[in-house]
Write a protein that binds this DNA or RNA. Structure first.
Lengths: 138, 138
DNA sequence: TAAGAAAAAGCAACAATGTTGCAAAATGTT
DNA sequence: AACATTTTGCAACATTGTTGCTTTTTCTTA
């Protein structure tokens, strides 16, 4: 088990449990994003589905991971950067979905552009999802 | 039933059926986007769920409607503009989700910006979803 | 306009995904 | 070590989406 996982959990005021360590470890081992189903498979039948749902929900609330919108019907989760505080995400970067390998990546260095909206609209958050071919598949 | 619906269906080489007319009419009556569940409710218990799924799928294939990615787990559909051909969508506009009324709108006049990707990535499509307050709720 | 071919709808059964309440187990604290 | 609190696992259920097959509807053309 990777070092630092307990510290991440503790710094989010979460008690350290086997399932939280395991799931968090999956995210740290993984370059891209994970959907609930991926975790269920990778965790290897060891955790109840309900536990995974609740753990992911907790991690989102605590700002450890964030969700990525997709055109298919699967919510994907990815690790947040350090500046994500509880209930207050700062993941203003672009997300990339590879149409060949189906992996989802956070392009942390690409900041979402600002959008000029029509009169009467106000913005609180912008999501940008780019579809294409990733560097591993190109 | 609104005029022109039959013509839209025919020009997509689709046979005119009660459910297709009804569902297409819902989209024409509606400013924003619709999820499968919305249609099921609004159609008023008259159509089989399977028929709705298949109709939506057909409409997407024919370029009549397009899907909008969301952070919650519901695919939303909206009418395509005239320049959407079969299997070849041109809906390169920004989508807007109102966090107050929960409606989703197509901002047809706001074109998606181009994004500079890291080396090795290539783009085929860009989705931009803006969250905020819409003109009706502001 | 009636008849036949083709397409779509409806039905049933199923699969996958997500939610809730509650009892048992694990965690952290004193 | 013991206790209060939190988390897990289980069971049951709700929602959402899919597939195969039969019946019905639509379109075509004679």
């Amino acid at each position: 088990m990777k070092k630092g996982i307990k510290e991440i959990l503790k710094s989010s005021q979460l008690s350290v449990t086997a399932s939280r360590e395991k799931i968090l470890n999956l995210f740290l081992d993984q370059e891209g994003a994970l959907a609930h189903g991926d975790i269920e498979k990778k965790a290897g039948e060891k955790f109840d589905r309900v536990t995974i749902y609740r753990t992911l929900q907790t991690f989102v609330e605590k700002g450890i991971i964030h969700t990525i919108p997709t055109v298919d019907n699967s919510i994907r989760y990815a690790l947040c950067k350090d500046d994500c505080a509880e209930g207050h995400h700062h993941d203003h970067h672009v997300h990339f979905v590879c149409s060949r390998c189906q992996n989802t990546f956070c392009l942390d260095d690409i900041v979402t552009p600002s959008i000029d909206l029509p009169k009467g609209y106000s913005t609180s958050h912008i999501e940008v999802v780019v579809e294409g071919t990733c560097k591993n598949c190109n």
